[in-house]
């Protein structure tokens, strides 16, 4: 590997510092034994222990995970279907409109998405709770899944599906036994992306959540307004850990499949 010049090395150091020092401080202070957030008084894991006994936080964590798993799964199914329709459907009626609509949440300010969903749920008389957050997150994250999956589908060799049909598969069978296993890494990466997005969404969730369904980000945000407690630091540290693992796994899965594909294409020459 090439060695970095001193200029590149310094910019890299500054970049990393800028991005990660705030988080690092948070992580360090989560192990602080003092109740005062800004004064270091020695190492301790007592805030983690205390957190484990905090019913309200645990309840919120459970809601968050539930929402994230269900919504990212729904978003993966719908997003994959949408990607397939757009890449394979040819020029069906309303294609441009459809693809525009699918990607709209990607660029739409979250406040607007949240507000419009809130109005919708009130309009149709739906009680706000876990269900509404799941729906909102599905809508938000589906477009990310569909971007990831369709970029894989574009480079997918169509004749593989044709060969499956030729050998007696129905179109659904061909999708299940040929297309899906091959695009699986992209689908998994999409799911992980959707999962992490749902996990840390605050804005939309705060619009569509009800009194019985507080997610962790909402809980953290509202307790911080009453003053930062070391318990929050501990909780945030755990969340950072989960999200980091999610992102790393997603990128590893994608990287591995890209490398595999590159190898296969090289071998195919």
């Amino acid at each position: 590997m090439k060695r970095l010049s001193w200029f590149n090395a310094t910019s890299l150091a500054f970049g990393f510092a800028f991005l990660y020092i705030p988080m690092l401080i948070l992580v360090i202070y989560s192990f602080n034994s003092s109740k005062l957030v800004t004064v270091w008084a020695g190492f301790s894991t007592k805030w983690y222990v205390e957190l484990a006994g905090n019913e309200a936080f645990l309840e919120a964590a459970w809601v968050t995970i539930k929402v994230a798993v269900i919504s990212s799964t729904l978003a993966t199914v719908l997003g994959t279907m949408a990607a397939y329709a757009m890449v394979r459907g040819g020029r069906f009626f309303g294609r441009t409109l459809f693809s525009g609509m699918v990607y709209a949440p990607l660029v739409m300010p979250e406040v607007i998405t949240g507000l419009s969903l809130l109005l919708l749920f009130i309009g149709i008389g739906m009680d706000r709770g876990v269900m509404t957050i799941v729906l909102a997150h599905t809508i938000l994250t589906m477009c990310y899944v569909s971007v990831v999956v369709s970029s894989r589908l574009v480079s997918f060799d169509r004749s593989l599906e044709e060969a499956a049909l030729d050998l007696g598969c129905t179109p659904f069978d061909a999708f299940r036994s040929v297309t899906l296993p091959i695009i699986a890494p992209a689908v998994i990466a999409g799911w992980l992306l959707a999962f992490t997005l749902s996990l840390d969404d605050l804005v939309i969730a705060s619009f569509v959540s009800g009194p019985s369904s507080t997610t962790l980000p909402i809980k953290i945000f509202s307790s911080v307004r009453l003053g930062v407690s070391p318990e929050i630091n501990a909780l945030s540290t755990i969340m950072i850990g989960i999200v980091t693992i999610g992102v790393i796994v997603a990128s590893l899965v994608t990287k591995r499949s890209v490398a595999m594909r590159a190898k296969q294409e090289r071998d195919a020459e």
Partner: peptide, 20 residues
Amino acid sequence: IPPNKRAVNMMFQSYALFPH
């Protein structure tokens, strides 16, 4: 008549082997 309903098999010029 869709391909899967034809008593015809084809060997593709690009082989189209299933990589997985």
